[in-house]
Amino acid sequence: MSEMSGLTTEQAKALFERFRELIDSHAAELTELDAAIGDADHGSGMQRGAQAAAEAIASADTPAAVFKAAAMSFISKVGGASGPLYGTAFLRAAGVQPQAAEWSAEDLRAALHAGYDGLKQRGGAEPGDKTMLDAWQPALDALDSGGDLQAAAQAAAQGRNATADLIARKGRASYLGERARGHIDPGAASSALLFQALAESAGGPA
């Protein structure tokens, strides 16, 4: 198992540029997932957010500044549940090392944990509730047990897939009860793309 990398400002920017690409190419899929158990707007919402973030980070000069700019973009452009959730996660992540010109692997891990805690606090959900937490939590577990960002991305993808077995207890899908089973959670799917973007942007040796 290779070592987890840290994050330079350039890598942080590459993360959000790559995230935007991935969201664009998966937008229809996200909307379809949301149509099945939600309200068919997750694809277009994430597109607005990822696009705005990729633009807003241009002048940022620290990883924290990148995350903060991305946070404000998601909060200001997305709406719905995912806007404040991603926004809060990115804002909290930015707060861990607000000044550093570069994040160590440890900083990055702490930032992702802070983001995850922000998600939980803002949304009041727990893992297993069939939300984006179910992609984040296995990804963080992978990092905590020594995995690299590649491993985290894989774990997030597995967590996303596993949401198909769950019934939802938060968000719009919770109205479905048993009928939500068999469907992947759209927010978990977009979160898996976030970890994929992170692995592809910062996954090389730090």
Partner: peptide, 11 residues
Amino acid sequence: PGEVFTSPVPD
């Protein structure tokens, strides 16, 4: 007004 079926943003 938010986007169609999407809550508005805090701004």
